[in-house]
Write a protein that binds this DNA or RNA. Structure first.
Length: 496
RNA sequence: GCUCCCAUCGUCUAGUGGCCUAGGACGUGGCCCUCUCAAGGCCAAAACCGGGGUUCGACUCCCCGUGGGAGCACCA
């Protein structure tokens, strides 16, 4: 058992909106840190200036905060290994690249981009795997140094071993063995002086004391290269874990840009930012993605963050790719809404009411929470379900005021009768109103459902609503009377 | 083309050689409850990709095939 507490990192490159795959990688890293008094680090991989997008970085920070994945070291909070922007660590990478050159593990390469492209195209045309020609690999070090000193444009390439093979251990997949000759002499330091991922990430991971690298499966093919780089420096490798990709809902293939856009049109999205707007809870999203690639046991599926911190286990991860299932997200979201304290739910609902044009405070929402809590799967359904409590006038179309299988006149008569009783009720609440209304239905030879249906439509303006009598109590006698009265008027006019 | 990864109900998964007539969850269908809609309760249909081995015995181990995925940049 290692006494070393884990240091893990989430190291995204801010080039687009934060999506579920990144969220899950961040989550798992976070969980490992939390469960062993470890440290979760956020590092921004922005070595490619051309693709850097400041908005993406903002979105990233916002998304992680929303998910409540707090980092202990990172760009905004600093830390012992600052800076946490790779673009600000150029000197470090250069130094390390040169160290490799002096160790004979890397070399200066003066080949031009054009020439490289030409060779690559040729190789592809001949159905050869693209590979660096090796032309500068064995340049005499002295000559190379002189050309560099003379200001000739160059990069630093890794000198991958030519013979034999390497086997690397991935925690999820076991030993992975590849022939060294299939590993290319990759560029480590670009001619503009910036490091490439393969150098920057390895150097940072080592310097920052990273013990476990959890990253996307797309890095698996370069894992052998990374292992060689660690070896070249003489560093101890971290535990490698490569998380599989998320597939589209059909399970057939991974999400393409087009799929992503298509999805957003239908009110679904893989972007954290959109999920917020769609009314999902961070708790629901976290529970959902945690279970895509990891499981606890046969029967537990409901997890809060503290549960996850306690129960998460690398050993129980599943290496196969998982299809995204929004139905399951809905399920978890509804579960977490129901599990939430009423006060908290009221607070979270507020912004969605405001977006629907209904300004209120948590206190006003308090009485309606108990009757809508089990009826919502997403927060944005709150206003749809309970907006009528707070809107001034509701005026449902007259057709809605006619009872099932009833005439206009009969409906008006039923409402008159109900109105008469409701207005003299000694106490106006759910318990006191229900029995008398059932009696009214009985008297008129109606089914309770027929009368209640009319009343529901009249009072809530909706075919689907929270329970009638509870709703009436909250709406209040005065407003209930007014709504019934105006419904009677409308029905009478229709009859004329 | 080459390298690597993956493969259990429609989907997420349990399963580490006998506990499997393969378990759970979502979804789907049915029933109960019921003032609508939910929630809740009960029940049902639904899977080990194919072929070879290994073994007394394979969902579990090995090989081949097939299918899916990733990568092969001075991008990450």
């Amino acid at each position: 058992m290692s006494a070393k507490s884990p240091r893990v990192r989430f190291a995204p490159s801010p080039t687009g909106l934060t999506h579920l795959g990144s969220a899950r990688t961040a989550l798992y890293n976070y969980l490992i840190a939390q469960q062993n008094k470890g440290v979760f680090i956020l590092r921004i991989e922005d070595t490619d200036q051309k693709r850097y997008d400041p908005q993406a970085e903002q979105d990233l920070i916002a998304s992680l905060k929303w998910l409540e994945l707090a980092w202990k070291e990172g760009p905004d909070v600093g830390g012992p290994h600052a800076p946490y922007y790779q673009s600000k660590r150029m000197d470090i990478y250069r130094k390390h690249a040169e160290e490799l050159v002096s160790k004979g593990k890397a070399y200066y390469c003066f080949c031009s981009t054009e020439e490289l492209d030409r060779v690559r195209k040729e190789q592809q045309a001949n159905k050869q795997p693209p590979h660096y020609s090796g032309r500068c690999r064995d340049l005499p070090p002295e000559e190379a140094r002189q050309r560099v000193a003379a200001g000739e444009s160059c990069v630093i390439r890794f000198k991958a071993p030519k013979g034999g093979s390497i086997t690397v251990l991935d925690k999820l997949r076991g030993e992975i063995t590849v022939e060294n000759r299939s590993i290319d002499d990759r560029v480590l330091l670009k001619s503009d002086g910036h490091a490439v991922y393969h150098l920057a990430a390895m150097v940072d991971d080592h310097l920052m004391g990273i013990t476990h690298v959890l990253r996307g499966e797309e890095w698996l093919p370069s894992l052998p290269l990374h292992a060689h780089i660690y070896e070249a420096f003489g560093w101890e490798q971290p535990v490698w874990v490569h998380l599989s990709v998320f597939l589209k809902p059909s399970g057939k293939g991974k999400m393409s840009k087009r799929d992503t856009e298509q999805m957003r049109l239908t009110g679904q999205s893989i972007f954290v930012k959109d999920l917020v707007d769609l009314g999902y809870l961070p708790e629901g999203v976290v529970n959902w993605i945690a279970l895509m690639g990891w499981s606890y046991d046969d029967h537990t599926e409901f997890f809060t963050m503290p549960d996850l911190i306690e129960k998460f286990d690398l050993e129980k991860m599943n290496p196969s790719p998982a299809a995204i299932d929004f139905k399951k997200l809905d399920h978890f979201n509804a579960l977490h809404i129901r599990a939430m304290p009423e006060k908290e739910l009221a607070k979270r609902l507020l912004p969605y009411f405001e977006k629907a044009g209904i300004k209120l405070d948590a206190g006003m929402l308090a009485p309606v929470i108990p009757i809508i809590q089990t009826r919502m799967t997403t927060l944005d359904e709150g206003p749809e379900l309970a907006g009528f409590f707070f809107r001034e006038g509701i005026s449902p179309p007259v057709e809605m005021l006619i009872g099932k299988g009833m005439t206009t006149a009969a409906s008006a008569a039923a409402l008159r009768k109900a109105l008469g009783i409701l207005e003299v009720l000694p106490e106006f609440n759910a318990a006191s109103a229900e029995e008398p209304m059932r009696a009214v239905a009985d008297e008129l030879g109606l089914k309770a459902g027929q009368l209640f249906g009319i009343l529901r439509n009249v009072i809530t303006g909706q075919e689907i609503s929270p329970p009638l009598f509870e709703s009436m109590e909250i709406v209040g006698r005065v407003t209930v009377m007014a709504r019934i009265q105006s419904a009677i008027t409308a029905l009478d006019q229709l009859a004329d």
